[in-house]
Design a protein around this nucleic acid. Structure first.
Length: 276
DNA sequence: AGACAAGCCTGTACGC
DNA sequence: TGCGTACAGGCTTGTC
């Protein structure tokens, strides 16, 4: 399930491979894949556009062109595949195909069809309506204790609920919320208003450290709808997971069995001894 | 066979 | 009353 580190891996892959390329054809076959605008309008706007940059805000991929932005959200099971040409075997659940001017194809594959694509012309409010709801990016933006502190204390929720709220911090999903809590030594069900200043300092450091390590490892490929990058390679961070998906297994630090529970309506994993 | 997993949106209920 | 938060439901389908 792609979260910030997985989306960032796709972003850097696209930046290295499709910047400067022009989209010469657009085919959308999935009926739900483009749902914020008519498919014909989407295709007409995107066709002929040259990619100038590839950005990201939280889990949203922002493909900049010479006129407008292609916005991609992978949600749970969405995947982008860059293939050499139309002869490449087509994965099941391929819902959109962008043909590039060098013959390669950028394909959007998504079994559960939660993911989506849309295209915003310059100055169109749609882009701002989406990204404007997002808080600072968990990787790119500075989230030192002085920034994080007010965000944390002002809310009355659980730490995990806070980390998952894209309006507060953009990019953290269920896996990394648990890993950040472990790295900070804080339980996911801790009330945010109870966090002391020194704990906010630990949280801030853990957020940056986990995001940076996960991006360096190319993200996590684990379980449901297992993530793959542009070239179908898995990430490597799952082997470093301290708690996520490890309920009942020994904590890598103290050996205590990792606890599995539910927090903020989500599965949650933590070490009862290392985290408070 | 049916519960479950996920991200995000929407609607509604609730507490301070 | 109003605000922020909590929770459930919807969307989907492969996996257990």
């Amino acid at each position: 399930m792609p979260e910030l580190p997985e989306v960032e891996t796709v972003r850097s892959g696209l930046a290295a491979t499709v910047v400067g390329r022009t989209v010469v054809a657009v085919r959308v076959t999935g009926p739900r894949t483009v749902r914020r605008q008519p498919v014909r309008r989407f295709a007409a706007r995107l066709t002929g556009r040259r990619v100038t940059a590839v950005g990201r805000h939280g889990k949203y991929l922002l493909v900049g062109t010479d006129r407008g932005t292609l916005v991609i959200h992978l949600r749970m099971t969405g995947r982008l595949a860059l293939v050499d040409g139309p002869q490449a075997p087509r994965a099941p659940h391929t819902h959109a195909i962008l043909t590039l001017d060098d013959g390669r194809e950028l394909r959007f594959v998504d079994p559960r069809t939660f993911g989506e694509l849309f295209f915003c012309l310059p100055g169109e409010p749609l882009l701002g309506q989406v990204t404007g709801r997002l808080g600072p990016d968990a990787l790119v933006d500075e989230l030192g204790p002085e920034v994080l502190g007010p965000l944390v204390v002002r809310r009355r929720t659980t730490l995990k609920g806070l980390l998952l709220d894209q309006r507060v911090i953009a990019g953290v999903g269920n896996i990394y919320a648990d890993e950040i809590c472990f790295a900070a030594g804080l339980r996911p069900d801790r009330r945010t208003e109870s966090l002391r200043p020194d704990e906010v300092v630990r949280l801030s450091a853990a957020l940056a450290a986990v995001m940076e390590r996960a991006v360096a490892a190319g993200g996590s490929s684990l379980g449901d709808g297992s993530y793959r990058d542009l070239f179908d390679s898995p990430g490597a961070f799952q082997v470093e997971h301290a708690v996520y998906g490890r309920a009942g297994e020994p904590c890598r630090v103290c050996g205590t069995a990792v606890a599995g529970t539910r927090v903020a309506g989500r599965s949650a994993h933590y070490c009862p001894r290392c985290q408070s």
